[in-house]
């Protein structure tokens, strides 16, 4: 795609997203708010999986840590929107850095299993540490966010959506910029050939830790958006299912293409919550089918597929 065309498309999509509350009823804005929170989670995961080649099955952990941190701050200190957000970013990022010191020393399947293990530990901790997390009941009664210190709580779904959209866009821009920076080129080098990166003088440990921390911070921000929308957080929010959904969104959307992860997250959330709900709890089954279909029909995901070629000719064996 030509750069001009793709920036025009980007501007158009943002304008359409901004216009949603003006055109559609409140429940659409609410659904989209949840989609945006999970999309930001998926985008931050794509930075790990697609850009840096570090497949994680535990990305719900920094998301959940951010969500709990934002919920506690909003409940106990202030619900002035930027404060829980920033606390969530710091909490998610710190969590990722601290656990990352161990994890980024491993590779491939070991890394995958370790991310899964840490996320399961976080999940169990959220269930058991009742004093802080409210145990399996979760934290509820979280006040609506305010857009001025001590100001009126936001009650309009559309305004809350705009706040979530703004943070989503900033988060997306940060991840996009990261992948375009010199650090981003180094991360792609890591994905392609870690041994050669070391042999030309890169400390792969610091590179991996850096990206793990950035992805954790953005996942934390996504967690705070999740809480801003739901005003409730429970151990389910850092359960394996959330990590798996995020990974599914990345794979369906096309690894390494950040906007693909956004589309993937939208598809996954809507299939599970909206279509799945009308099928009486068969959402996960349907998701599994979507996943299988995506892997067979679009092995490079939405974003990695050459659509014109797909529709005009038989798809040729293309190079990954």
């Amino acid at each position: 795609m030509k750069p001009k065309l793709s920036s025009a498309l980007a501007v158009l999509s943002v304008l359409l997203l901004v216009a949603v509350p003006l055109v559609f009823p409140a429940d659409i804005a609410n659904t989209l708010s949840r989609v945006l929170a999970l999309a930001l989670l998926a985008v931050s995961l794509d930075l790990l999986v697609g850009v840096s080649g570090m497949p994680s099955l535990g990305h719900a952990a920094p998301f959940g840590v951010g969500a709990y941190a934002a919920a506690l701050v909003a409940r106990d200190t202030t619900s002035f929107a930027p404060v829980p957000l920033l606390v969530a970013v710091v909490a998610g990022g710190l969590f990722a850095l601290l656990t990352g010191v161990l994890m980024v020393r491993t590779k491939g399947t070991y890394f995958l299993m370790l991310t899964l293990a840490i996320a399961e530990l976080a999940h169990v901790l959220a269930q058991r540490w009742e004093g802080l997390t409210g145990g399996t009941n979760g934290l509820y009664g979280i006040p609506s966010l305010t857009l001025a210190p001590g100001g009126e709580p936001v009650t309009l779904a559309g305004v809350r959506y705009w706040w979530i959209l703004l943070i989503f866009l900033i988060g997306f821009a940060i991840v996009w910029w990261t992948s375009r920076s010199m650090l981003g080129r180094s991360l792609r080098g890591l994905r392609d050939n870690e041994e050669r990166m070391a042999s030309i003088g890169y400390s792969t440990f610091w590179l991996k830790l850096a990206v793990y921390g950035i992805a954790g911070g953005v996942a934390g921000a996504a967690g705070s958006l999740w809480v801003a929308q739901n005003r409730f957080v429970s151990p389910e929010d850092l359960a394996f299912e959330v990590s798996a959904m995020a990974l599914l969104a990345v794979v369906v959307g096309g690894r390494g293409r950040l906007w693909g992860a956004v589309l993937g997250a939208a598809l996954v959330t809507i299939v599970r919550d909206d279509i799945g709900a009308s099928l009486g709890g068969r959402g996960p089954l349907l998701l599994g089918l979507v996943f299988i279909a995506a892997v067979y029909l679009l092995p490079h995901g939405f974003a990695g597929t050459n659509w014109r070629q797909l529709f005009t000719r038989r798809p040729q064996e293309d190079k990954a």
């Binding site: 910029w177 990261t178 375009r180 920076s181 010199m182 650090l183 981003g184 080129r185 180094s186 792609r188 080098g189 994905r191 392609d192 050939n193 050669r196 990166m197 030309i200 003088g201 890169y202 610091w206 590179l207 850096a210 990954a320």
Partner: peptide
């Protein structure tokens, strides 16, 4: 680095030498 072009392959080495291998502020 097979998914990049030769120029990026070499630039990876060059940016490390320039001390910008982990630079977040510089665009590639």
């Amino acid at each position: 680095f097979l998914s990049m072009n030769p120029l990026d392959n070499v630039a990876l080495a060059a940016q490390r030498v320039a001390g910008k291998g982990m630079s977040w502020v510089t665009s590639s």
